[in-house]
Design a protein around this nucleic acid. Structure first.
Lengths: 248, 248
DNA sequence: ATAAAAATTGCAAGAAACAGCAAAAAAGAA
DNA sequence: TTCTTTTTTGCTGTTTCTTGCAATTTTTAT
């Protein structure tokens, strides 16, 4: 077996599974551990893979140490950056809960002057810290699972509000299923929030695209803008661009 | 299973749920608790997550003031322990804000069954985490200084409540000046909370005894119970025992 | 206050990595 | 072909890394 041949097989394995183990390759290629180690060292020097104790992982699999933030969080941050650009002074905005919304609250410019309503205590605290805008927390029964206020009190307060924008995170976004959620209470709140605002901005990481959860929030037609970390021209979003007015 | 693999899985879990438990990961990954602990330590050193007792939380969910353990001076904890003993099942209680109240929220027994109203998002989150009781957050404009909800909305919601107990922290307690506060808005809220409850429990560390602030909340006669970290028979409290029905 | 759960520390067994060396294989030259 | 040179491979002993265990301390729950 040629050296080059082994290298190709190793690369194929890594691209397929994201990782390889030294002993696994040893069995697969019927050569000694040392040979495999030397192979891995060479491939690493070429810059194709990253060696770790026990084997090697693909470059995309490996998170460099300099990057202190977690990958999904980077994506969420990118989404929040795009969404926050929609904020204009004197705007009245409704904010949902979830981690993307927390990122958004964190990114609100200090000089932004507007009114922010939210059902999430965490988002409220973050927004109040980071901006001089008015932050109004819509109170109600606090759900320990979702960390947002739920129940009739929230619904009735929402019905008294007329907001310009409603920013929501999505747990499931699909062409057929629309926007879906795994918690019934949360779905109700989101529905009502959308009714209380002129326009709805839905934020979804691409992982959640074409994912369908148990509880329906709305059809895609009800969305005015879909924000993902992807480029709006990405092929994964092609079919969405026909249904939703604006992609970011 | 490669170490890197475990790390990736842990990060994914944290991003998905916001938190992980050591034992949960132990079951999921089929390795010993020690290995999980070491993994979490490494990920924390990388800056990806924040370790807490029992597991780890996502950096996004981790808000600096959510870990008031640093402020949790022994005295405040002692006060909270005494106060929490006043809670009985099926009780409706109003909770104020502040660090003592956070300690109280943390000490609420898991089996306590009652209804808790609060104007503080932090207290609400803590209480919802630590007990199976119903937690209702009274929403309103969030004050960035005091981290509690203020304004007319809170006042009007409070006027619709009839609670058994009202638990408040005090920033100033004196024989002549009564209970005082440095923030006008907060003083208004506290006044209204007291009116909405049958009995008021005031919690004050001895540092704040004989301290007078600018804004008056009430006279000492309006207090049903004063809780301090001192022994009720302490001579510093002697003159208070004549005015207040109960000392703890 | 007491009991239970979790964290920390030190340690030892096992697995993997490393370095040097020698045998085997491959390549090139006479 | 045969000999020499170079490269590759496998082996050995040593070192490093990882993991799980036990004892102890700290934190949390009751």
């Amino acid at each position: 077996m040629l050296q080059q041949e082994r290298h190709n097989i190793i690369l194929k394995e890594i691209n397929l599974h994201g990782k390889v183990t030294t002993t696994g390759l040893c069995r697969l290629l019927k050569v000694s551990l040392d040979t495999i180690r030397r192979d891995l060292t060479e491939l690493e020097n070429q810059g194709s893979i990253v060696k770790v104790h026990g084997g090697a992982v693909s470059k995309t699999f490996h998170i460099p140490f300099q990057q202190p933030r977690v990958y999904a969080q980077e994506e969420k941050k990118r989404i929040a950056e795009k969404a926050v650009s929609l904020l204009k002074d004197d705007m009245v905005a409704l904010l949902g809960g979830g981690t993307i919304m927390l990122e958004l609250a964190r990114l609100i410019p200090r000089e932004f002057k507007g009114t922010l309503f939210t059902v999430s205590p965490l988002v409220a605290l973050e927004a109040a810290e980071n901006s001089r805008s008015q932050v109004i927390l819509l109170g109600g029964r606090l759900s320990a699972e979702s960390y947002i206020c739920t129940g009739a009190a929230v619904i009735s307060q929402l019905q008294q509000i007329r907001a310009d924008f409603c920013f929501l995170g999505s747990n499931g976004t699909s062409l057929k299923g629309g926007i879906t959620e795994d918690d019934w209470e949360v779905a109700q709140i989101k529905k009502t929030m959308m009714q209380a605002a002129d326009k709805t901005v839905m934020m979804s990481i691409s992982e959640k695209i074409e994912v369908v959860q148990k509880m329906k929030v709305c059809n895609l037609q009800a969305i005015d803008c879909l924000v993902t970390e992807l480029n709006p021209g990405d092929k994964r979003l092609a079919r969405y661009s026909k249904v939703i007015k604006k992609l970011l």
